[in-house]
């Protein structure tokens, strides 16, 4: 009887406040303040994460970029389902993403989007799946949450901040408000296995760790023997981590205008 109960409690769909939960693992976000408050010390794998923001361009991608770059080196795919604009390859490469692991999916109809999302999340060959749903019903999100669990995948939904009022089965809901680059306010609206927290301040341009862009010489090798040389990515081409000094980011090209 006890055993059955333990098994039930070990099920990761059951939320126990303060208890030792077995999660599917966590992914360091690259931001120390954020990792400190997230249960397990990072983004939850095998679950949905919602990033809510009021306008494009406030850093919604830079918030997740250190973790995504790290995932892209680990062998599985990063799928972007129906992105609202063009994900710009040079910028992604500069953030340390391995572009050969990115899969862009452009469904035509809305129902196909949901189907494609579920397929990619469930397949197990994608480490992260990003989507930009305009409106989603609770039941649909619930399906996606289960698919992410089944495929051990980081399901990321980037939504408008108005969706904050709706309820959602996502394991983590993050609301972003940007004032300036070095000062982005992040509120954790819902944290499964932890407690919500308001008013984190992050400097998105300077994550604690960041993946360097893939070297050109390395890519030449990879082209000569695709997939053979380092099939796992992580073993042979390690993620290069370094602490960045805030000052280095600025360009010499800066010119005051008028």
């Amino acid at each position: 009887m006890d055993n059955a109960l333990d098994d039930l409690l070990r099920e990761h769909r059951i939320w126990r406040r303060g208890g030792n939960r077995t999660t599917q693992g966590c992914l360091p976000s690259g931001f120390a303040q954020l990792d400190a408050v997230l249960p397990g010390g990072g983004w939850p794998m095998g679950a949905l994460t919602e990033v809510l923001h009021n306008a494009p361009g406030i850093g919604e991608l830079r918030l997740i970029m250190p973790a995504l770059a790290r995932l892209s080196r680990a062998g599985r795919w990063i799928a972007l389902v129906a992105p609202p604009h063009i994900p710009y390859a040079p910028a992604l490469a500069a953030q340390g993403m391995d572009l050969s692991r990115i899969l862009l999916i452009h469904p035509r109809a809305g129902s196909d989007t949901l189907w494609a999302l579920e397929q990619t999340m469930r397949s197990g060959s994608c480490a992260a799946v990003l989507a930009w749903p305009r409106q989603a019903e609770h039941q649909q999100l619930r399906r996606l949450q289960l698919a992410a669990e089944a495929g051990h995948c980081w399901g990321l939904l980037l939504r408008n901040e108005q969706a904050a009022a709706e309820r959602s089965p996502a394991a983590l809901r993050v609301l972003m408000q940007g004032q300036g680059d070095a000062d982005t306010r992040v509120d954790l609206l819902k944290v499964r296995g932890g407690r919500p927290r308001q008013g984190l301040r992050l400097d998105l341009n300077n994550p604690r760790v960041r993946a360097l862009p893939l070297q050109t010489s390395q890519s030449g090798q990879a082209a000569a023997s695709p997939g053979r040389k380092h099939p796992e990515g992580t073993h042979k081409a390690p993620v290069l981590l370094y602490r960045q000094h805030p000052r280095q980011e600025r360009h010499q090209l800066d010119l005051p205008l008028e």
């Binding site: 494009p56 361009g57 991608l61 830079r62 970029m65 609202p84 604009h85 063009i86 994900p87 710009y88 390859a89 040079p90 910028a91 992604l92 490469a93 500069a94 953030q95 391995d98 572009l99 050969s100 862009l104 862009p213 893939l214 050109t216 890519s219 030449g220 990879a222 082209a223 695709p226 997939g227 360009h251 090209l253």
Partner: peptide, 25 residues
């Protein structure tokens, strides 16, 4: 400076300035 074609040869050469993560078509 980008293409849909999936290839293993990454990074032609990083552009000199900072580039945005979203580009409008």
């Amino acid at each position: 400076a980008w293409s849909h074609r999936a290839s293993n040869e990454t990074v032609a050469r990083a552009p000199p300035g900072e580039r945005p993560l979203w580009l409008l078509p």
